[in-house]
Design a binder for these strands. Structure first.
Lengths: 344, 344
DNA sequence: AGCGGTACTGAAAGCGCTTTCTCATCCCGT
DNA sequence: ACGGGATGAGAAAGCGCTTTCAGTACCGCT
């Protein structure tokens, strides 16, 4: 599917009766060119519908204005929000974006980084994140190679041993804050809907939550921690299982809002009133949760902002040894899905 | 921010003690090379962490495995769903994606097409769509130039006078189906929450809805059609205004689910029961609407599927004169947000 | 008139790869 | 033993641009 001949800079130069060099200079504004010639070139370019070949430019300049973005799933509201922020910032910096969606498959993540490296992008934003040691090692090698050649890397959320600039949603602390807020409401028996423990995000959130409870002397039994896919239906199923085992908790924490949404549906189906019978809280504050009934208590993360910031990080001048880390504290938002509890 | 020297194919060739040509052939598998040399090349490439420069390849081959995707806003659940489909299909076809988000600004749309054209992508997917004649003319010119040089274009939803392969959600028919379903429920007085009439999608949906009503002899008064931004908050505000004017309709149609979600919130705030006091319906069937209370009646569009199909279109061999059009009929899904109505 | 600048413009050398051509070899049948 | 088709490998010509480097003109001065 080769492209047919496009007009090249050479054509433009010929049409304008100037040299290649001059045409290039006019179109890039890299040097002063006499107004007469300048005009002729601009006109010729317009007339020929000239569009500079980005590849040729990238090759000649050995640099590009492209960044690579790799995330788990653009379809997920979490990444959709982040992606929006990234796109906004990219457009502000006049950067192009090539996108990779791993669908949560670690090897696809590595494949994408390789591909993106091939594109000689000036920066790479990584928004996925796996606990898998082996994978992480491979990824790290890939990224080190990339950086060795001058590439920038910025990650969103924690990545094991990936020395890179990062925007860090404080999942651990946010979940802990939430736990404390729920304790304050009087809850003492909790259940947790966990996502796959292969995701760092999940590990941090669940870990932070349990830890804060533990500090208050509250333990969560193993059977009250249910794991499921990091999706709405994953939450639904996990909740089903929890309910099937006999729901004894007075408060359920879902490690992400989309799971909470699913859980809410499951509870409704089982005639369990939220927050009457049980309180429910999520994490992220994706837009839709305000519109659930009841609106969901959650830890608000400024998703779009996170996206913008991680992109911005790569535009900052590189710092010698140290990497930059921007921590973003989630804000606990208490809504109607959680109610005070007192031992009847 | 020039990249430092990466290992080039030349380095690999030298390290393997073969010519550039042979190295290229081995790495691309384009010709048979003796097993001994082949092995040396592969090893050398691995050792040097060689990553072919995609730009150089694109330039030399004058073709690339990249497609451009342009949409209004990846953050919107509608496009997020579609984007997911596109990414899935792209990964299946081993195609890279460069993404553009126009944030609903027509000139940004044109700018993106130009940029994407510069990338010599093999195909361009356009998911936006404006009624604006002037803009459309500019866009069309841009795309014609692109196609004149062998580029493929596929659009999602109707685009005025853009002769291109298309996946066409039948907005008009879907809205009409919905209207008829609502009529069957007994409703005779309707209100419409319209998005900006600069969007083709809006025009089609609202038009189809009203037309079907008209055919049944039901008219909607001008003041019962309220326009707002194509967002959740746009729906909220539009509903506010409608309520402010004195809501007389027994059924409200929002031209997109996200607006319906906002409208639902507004109604709840005003103590208007859905569907007790008024029925409410949307369009798209984005995942979240199942989880609203009440779950939303809507016209279901297979979003992810739409995305896959529009990408697939560009992978099909081009057809001489005629363009392909895949129509996708939305399916009316009646949920609890709509109730039968009978004149009390 | 002659000198040092200043301001423009062009020729040409790459950027890193693919892909014709060309040229050796090698193996086969006869 | 010899011609001829495979087969394997290299040289070199681009792909479309940017960017040194090397002028050429022309300006104001002395």
């Amino acid at each position: 599917m080769a492209h047919q001949a496009q007009n090249t800079l050479g054509d433009v130069a010929k049409a304008a009766g100037v040299s290649l060099a001059t045409a290039s200079r006019v179109l890039n504004g890299t040097a002063s060119v006499g107004p007469a010639l300048r005009d002729r070139v601009v006109r010729a370019a317009e007339r020929l519908a000239y569009s500079p070949n980005a590849h040729a430019q990238a090759l000649a300049r050995s640099s590009s204005r492209t960044v690579g973005v790799i995330c788990h799933d653009v379809g997920d509201p979490y990444f959709a929000g982040i992606a929006r922020g990234v796109m906004r910032a990219a457009s502000r910096h006049d950067l192009q974006v090539v996108l990779g969606s791993t669908f949560r498959a670690p090897d696809r993540e590595v494949a994408y980084t390789a591909m993106v490296r091939g594109h000689r992008v000036r920066a790479m934003l990584i928004g996925s994140g796996f606990e898998d040691r082996e994978r992480q090692k491979v990824l790290r090698r890939e990224l080190d190679r990339y950086r060795a050649t001058g590439g920038r890397v910025a990650v969103l959320s924690r990545h094991r041993g990936l020395r890179a600039d990062a925007v860090l949603p404080e999942n651990r602390e946010g979940a802990a804050d939430l736990a404390r807020a729920l304790l304050t409401l009087g809850h003492r028996r909790f259940a947790v809907l966990s996502g796959p423990t292969s995701l760092t995000t999940v590990v941090d959130r669940v870990g932070g939550f349990l830890e804060a409870l533990a500090e208050a002397g509250v333990a969560v039994e193993r059977q009250d921690i249910v794991e499921g896919p990091f999706t709405r239906d994953g939450g639904y199923e996990a909740a089903q299982r929890l309910i099937g085992r006999g729901l004894r908790a007075t408060c359920v924490f879902a490690s992400t809002d989309v799971m909470a949404a699913g859980a809410l549906a499951a509870m409704r189906e089982h005639g369990i009133d939220v927050p009457g019978d049980v309180s429910l809280a999520g994490f992220d504050d994706i837009p839709m949760v305000r519109d659930l009934t009841p609106p969901l208590t959650t830890v608000a993360l400024p998703l779009e902002d996170l996206g913008e910031r991680v992109l911005e990080l790569t535009t900052l001048p590189e710092r010698a040894g140290r990497t930059r880390t921007e921590r973003v504290r989630g804000r606990v938002v208490l809504r109607e899905s959680t109610a005070p509890f007192s031992e009847a």
